[in-house]
Design a protein around this nucleic acid. Structure first.
Lengths: 334, 334
DNA sequence: TTGTAGGCGTTATCAC
DNA sequence: GTGATAACGCCTACAA
């Protein structure tokens, strides 16, 4: 921080006025004479005076800023989420800052922003920030909205995507097309998303009285590479199903890649579907059938919740946003 | 901000100690007796005491935070850039916050963070933040690194990507393949990137003694839709070239889409090349020949500059990072 | 080992 | 209209 920066004191001294008067002048308070106001402004300009936001925040006991915490800023589809948050925050005259929780110590960014009260509210979609930190940080004047997380606590509000229904619908889609031997490839074992999508899969399979193949327990960490090795493994083990439901798109793409490399045709030999509708899912060959999550809405709703809470409304019920099946070319009538 | 949050005063009162003693205890100063330190810690815990980061920053006159300002947080390839910054910042024990400059008033986020000194340094890749704001905000103790911007000022450091050379190389690539009638589709008229890429194009064309077709002045705003209409226009006007060099990938993809829709084959009838190597460029059909920008390096180098500057080294010459031609299927021997 | 006092840069509440 | 003064929450000489 600039050590020799001119402060309001310097301006006061130069203008031979009291600090308080300068403050009023700078804030366009009608009490100061127009002439002095102009003089103050000029002097401030000359001294390159800039108000110190930190001091102001300390005094005001508010920051007019909310933050959004993401594990991996700039992941494939956070763009829309951030936009949703930012639009709502801006129209509420709040500022938005984003921070990634991935690099460095777990939770360091979260602790700095939340516990040390550098923001007035937070939206969190980062599995690596633990519940403890969130519950601790949340308070009447620092509401927190958690996305995609099962957490019920005071001043913590929850926005969820209907992963289970999404999993159900995409599985049903496959079943309707005639696929029966459908394998589910799960993500990291601690992923709630993966788990819920699996439940939807299970429900659909049961509904069609189809014996569900055991969930494929080699998990792909949700990465393309992970999916790639799973694909290889599946074919190497000679247990190729009719269709693969991957818990996310990135793995699905890896799986498709490995299949195509070996000469297994998608969808003729094996159908592959994913989840998330990441941008490239539309462009891979064949284009990927998947489930869209309403990312923008998620951000916008989360931000709405935040401001509702900041305005004293604590009666906010968890919201469950609908998903949307997007049928493309990686699945077809069998 | 939490109004009824317990402060260090409350802890002191509860512990029947002076505020200063509590402060020392909390900061593990060896001067306080072990027993009192433990007692203080317990009481602090009981009161749910959390230090107020804002007060601390004000006192310390530093925030240990740098920010990265992007026009559109979460654009297609900022991911790597942010990662580069964050890795370096973290290893320097600094925190990183990101902010989008797109929504709302131009520059409001920038002003808040920079001019109001809420950060100790900044990295800016946002054409909508004007030079004025940057020059004004920069200072010995608030160095700013600008990316992709022609700006020379005190305490402002510059990291550039060699757009001109990139444009030169991709054009030469087309020329080497045998293309001669190559049209350049530019981006927004105020885009320096577009301009530099054009210069590279020009140089290569001259080098091959090929009459360069006039730059296509309908600019695509760098969007896929823009490219799409340009493609339509080109064919409707009956002025189809051998090859199209689009100033960025998104437009290139739009152009390809429109061509393919009309039955123009890429690259057999017309080759298309782009710039940026956005993720989907690998997946579109045909895959797009393009120029990679070293986004991670850009972020990492920018952050390095920042910390060099924060450590008193102001002799940092602008850096020009090399680009890399990536040949894919949208161009082939003619 | 602990306490007192002053200051970081603002703003708000009083007086004058 | 303008000026003292106190406060926001924390840290740090310097005293005791």
């Amino acid at each position: 921080m600039q050590k020799n920066m001119s402060t309001i004191k310097d301006v006061a001294k130069a203008a031979k006025l009291a600090v308080s008067t300068v403050s009023l002048a700078l804030n366009n308070d009608p009490r100061v004479k127009e002439s002095t106001r102009r003089r103050v402004l000029e002097i401030a300009q000359g001294l390159q005076y800039r108000p110190n936001g930190i001091a102001r925040d300390l005094k005001a006991r508010r920051t007019d800023t909310v933050c959004i915490l993401l594990h991996d800023l700039g992941g494939p589809f956070y763009s829309e989420l951030i936009r949703g948050v930012q639009d709502v925050a801006t129209s509420n005259k709040y500022n938005t800052i984003a921070s990634g929780t991935g690099g460095g110590h777990i939770g360091s960014a979260a602790v700095r922003l939340l516990s040390e009260r550098r923001v007035d509210g937070a939206i969190i979609l980062a599995p690596d920030v633990d519940d403890e930190t969130i519950i601790h940080a949340a308070g009447k004047d620092l509401p927190i909205v958690v996305l995609d997380r099962n957490l019920l606590a005071e001043n913590v509000y929850s926005v969820l995507v209907d992963n289970e229904r999404g999993g159900y619908e995409v599985t049903k889609h496959l079943l309707n097309l005639g696929y029966r031997n459908i394998v589910f490839v799960c993500g990291p074992s601690d992923s709630l998303d993966s788990e819920l999508r699996y439940r939807g899969y299970e429900t659909a399979m049961n509904e069609f009285h189809v014996q569900k193949s055991k969930r494929f327990d080699y998990c792909g960490h949700f990465t393309e590479e992970g999916g790639y090795s799973i694909g290889k493994l599946l074919s190497a083990m000679g247990i190729l199903p009719d269709a693969v439901f991957s818990a996310n798109d990135e793995m699905a793409i890896g799986i498709m890649k490995s299949f195509i490399e070996i000469g297994i045709r998608v969808p003729e030999d094996v159908a592959v579907v994913g989840f998330d509708n990441i941008p490239i899912s539309e462009y891979v060959q064949p284009s990927l059938t998947t489930v869209r999550q309403p990312m923008y809405d998620m951000g916008a709703v989360a931000a709405q919740f935040l401001f509702q809470a900041l305005n004293g409304n604590s009666e906010l019920q968890p919201v469950l946003l609908p998903t949307e099946l997007i049928v493309r070319n990686s699945s077809q009538v069998k």
